[in-house]
Amino acid sequence: MDMMISNLQQQRQITEQLRREAAVKRIPVSQAIQDIIKYIREREMEDCLMVGFSSQKANPFREKSSCAVI
């Protein structure tokens, strides 16, 4: 009996999860992708790891300029 009940409970959880997922509203992949691309394109120019820094001084992790005494 316990086994049956736990099976029922497990199955109910699975079905309920699927019911929730089936209720999710979906948009076409093409539209979703356009939005991702748009988001990225608008921010790419400020992405320091992509385009670097406007000047090396702006990089907090730059190597300290060492004064070489010759």
Binding site: I36, Y39, I40, R43, E44, E46, D47, C48, L49, M50
Partner: peptide, 10 residues
Amino acid sequence: SIDFSVSGRI
């Protein structure tokens, strides 16, 4: 481990 760059491109 993964992480995105600030624009999400990388």
